Computed example of a mutant assay.
Amino acid sequence: MKPAEEYILKQPEPFKSILLHLQILIETSFPEVDLQFKWKMPFYYLDEKPFCYLNVSKKKGYVDVGFWASAHLTKYNELLITENRKVIKSLRYFSVEDVNEEVLLSVLEEAHLLKDKGFYKRN
């Protein structure tokens, strides 16, 4: 089992359910992604470039899906959270029911297109 998968399965509820739901959505929509474990959290890579990451904040009770090159994202900007971060924007979920699949998949698709246009750097 990959360290990222082990990390997800060891999370307490509701984080584990949120992470598993996000994992299924991301991996079925983008089968070419590579799930890695970087900076103590699950990271998805495409063509060896960071695509998005899953961050659990147990203290604040949410899971973030964070995006690189977020300055270039245009879809659902009103739902993307910056919270004093200069580069990263994220979608935030407090429960599985909070996950709007249409929004998530739309932002992921746009991030995928940005990767193809060279907006992501190798990490």
Rank of each mutant, 00 (worst) to 15 (best):
K10S: 15
K89Y: 05
G118Y: 10
V63T: 08
H21Y: 09
L9Q: 14
I81L: 12
D34M: 08
F51W: 03
K75H: 13
K10W: 06
V103F: 11
A4I: 05
E78P: 01
Y44P: 04
F15C: 11
E109I: 02
V87A: 13
K16I: 01
L35V: 00
N77T: 05
H72L: 09
S57V: 01
G66C: 08
T74D: 08
N100Y: 05
D64Q: 03
V33H: 02
L105I: 02
Q23Y: 08
K89S: 14
S90K: 09
L108Q: 02
K58P: 10
G61K: 07
I24E: 15
D116F: 09
K89Q: 14
A69V: 07
F30M: 08
G66W: 05
L79P: 07
G66S: 10
E97R: 09
L25S: 04
G61E: 09
S29R: 04
L104V: 04
P3Q: 15
L25T: 03
P12K: 12
F119R: 06
S70A: 15
H21F: 07
S17E: 14
K60W: 07
L35G: 09
A4C: 11
E109H: 10
M41F: 02
C52S: 07
V87E: 09
I18C: 10
C52I: 00
E101C: 02
I81T: 05
F119I: 03
E83F: 10
V87C: 01
V65P: 11
H72P: 00
T28L: 12
A4W: 07
K60Y: 07
F37C: 06
Q36M: 09
H72T: 06
N84I: 02
R85F: 06
V107Q: 12
V99M: 15
K115G: 15
F119T: 03
Q23A: 09
Y93I: 07
E78G: 14
L105K: 09
R85K: 15
P31T: 08
V33Q: 03
V56I: 01
L20V: 07
L108V: 01
K38S: 01
Y7F: 15
L113R: 12
N55Y: 15
S95H: 11
F43H: 08
L25Y: 04
W39G: 00
L9Y: 11
E102S: 11
F43S: 00
S57R: 05
